[in-house]
């Protein structure tokens, strides 16, 4: 597993993310200049590019935590829809209900995360199946109850997605806060250190006296909460939650793809949010570059697949161990 040539220690561990970001940024800038769309490099052009990262970025941070702990979460896409729908239903255009709506969405996130975590950690259900199953349940409940849950967020809540502080969109600040928080926890706190331990080797962590189940459940709760926050952001960005917003957005597989592109091991124990955010940036620039180049959307889909595989292969290909 250690075969992939990932530099280690100190600043070196940011080398891969940095390389990804620089590559993507260069391609973006070159395309903008090459197609005479220099405006895309202006402040608002770049902010537009960054705003493409927000929804995927927030949930990808949560996905990073779950992958680091050696699990995976396929329920995030449907949970995003649930959160967006619940929030807009509870708020229902009413400014006073904003806090309640946010609380409700987060609470659902915690609940779903706890269910995922218990299934994985306590009942030992394969995390893929457990979260896929929970995702299907959420989808079923949502499509059944959507009409009951209709509503929209009040204008004042839409500040979250559309507001700016000193020229910087609030949404990007939100993403920065989530990333910084997760990054800090992982890199600086005992909880973060232990999370890596659990993901690296559950047995080792257990023998080191770590309550591994709590970390697995905790990571799932964290992931679900980020999905809920993504849902809140999308409700704010879109004005109302729709039951397909998460699934159509492909947030489940996309979030996994960006985390892996960012260098986090699918089997856990290595990686971090810096890489993830670089992966999200790559995805955002793919969209923007394809638009600028007027690439046929079907061809775009083919290229997206090739880029995902190519990006991951570029550093896994030297791995000696077998991967499945």
């Amino acid at each position: 597993m250690s075969g992939a040539a990932i530099p280690r220690g100190g600043l070196a561990k940011f080398r891969l993310p940095l390389a990804l970001v620089i590559c993507a940024a260069v391609v973006y800038a070159a395309t903008a200049l090459g197609t005479a769309q220099g405006e895309q490099l202006s402040w608002s052009g770049v902010m537009g590019l960054l705003q493409r990262m927000v929804a995927l970025g927030i949930v990808a941070v949560g996905q990073t935590l779950v992958l680091l702990v050696g699990s995976i979460d396929l329920s995030v896409a449907n949970l995003i829809s649930v959160s967006a729908v619940i929030a807009s239903h509870v708020m229902n255009g009413n400014t006073d209900a904003i806090a309640l709506g946010v609380l409700a969405a987060i609470a659902i996130g915690i609940l779903v995360g706890a269910v995922n975590g218990v299934l994985v950690a306590k009942l030992k259900v394969s995390p893929l199946i457990a979260t896929l199953g929970v995702g299907l349940v959420l989808q079923g409940v949502l499509t059944t109850s959507y009409e009951t849950l209709a509503g929209s967020v009040p204008a004042s809540f839409r500040v979250l997605a559309y507001g700016r502080v000193a020229g910087l969109p609030l949404a990007i600040l939100l993403l920065i806060v989530v990333v910084a928080l997760a990054g800090f926890v992982l890199a600086r706190t005992a909880a973060g250190y232990r999370l890596y331990g659990v993901g690296g080797n559950v047995q080792t962590a257990r023998l080191a006296g770590i309550r591994t189940d709590r970390f697995i459940i905790g990571a799932h709760i964290a992931a679900s909460v980020t999905a809920a926050i993504s849902g809140l952001y999308l409700a704010s960005w879109l004005g109302a939650g729709t039951p397909w917003v998460g699934r159509d957005g492909g947030y489940d597989l996309d979030s996994i793809a960006v985390v892996v592109i960012g260098g986090t091991l699918l089997s856990g124990g290595r990686g971090g949010v810096a890489g993830t955010i670089a992966g999200v940036f790559v995805f955002a620039t793919i969209d923007a570059v394809f638009n600028m180049l007027q690439i046929d959307p079907f061809l775009g889909q083919v290229l997206r697949g090739v880029i995902v595989v190519g990006a991951v292969a570029s550093y896994t290909i030297r791995t000696k161990a077998h991967v499945a």
């Binding site: 405006e39 537009g48 590019l49 493409r52 492909g250 889909q301």
Partner: peptide
Amino acid sequence: SYADAQDKDDKQISDIRAFVTGGK
């Protein structure tokens, strides 16, 4: 000029903004 949102609301919002910002 064409931008395809692939059935994603948030991508379509970004697409429209990019058109507006692009000034083309």
